[in-house]
């Protein structure tokens, strides 16, 4: 079921301060975050986040199309390299 509109988008509070700090510092550094569950807000556009996938921080450059998605959607947690037997379906 979809989230109630009156609650607004879910974001972990510290994300806002982190984003603000990165904005004001001016340098486009990767902001490391663990909060995959947070919604991408319009004020995050243009920043680069390192979204933890349980292993590494994958860099995610936020653009305006991503607004409304969650951070976790851009940092896959599983690696599947294909089955041993079927060589045709193998991918990098």
């Amino acid at each position: 079921m979809a989230r109630s509109v009156w609650k607004g988008p879910f974001v972990d509070g510290f994300m806002l301060t982190k984003a603000e700090k990165a904005r004001s510092s001016g340098r486009n550094e990767i902001i490391k975050i663990w909060s995959r569950r947070s919604t991408i807000l319009p004020q995050f556009v243009g920043l680069t986040f390192g979204v933890y996938n349980g292993h590494k921080f994958l860099p995610v450059q936020v653009n305006e199309n991503m607004v409304g998605h969650k951070f976790g959607e851009f940092s896959p947690t599983r690696t599947f390299t294909g089955h041993a037997a079927d060589k045709k379906a193998k991918r990098g």
Binding site: N65, M66, H69, G72, E73, F74, P76
Partner: peptide, 12 residues
Amino acid sequence: KRLMDLGCYRGL
């Protein structure tokens, strides 16, 4: 196509 270009999980 939008989902696929975004590189999000659903696109994959």
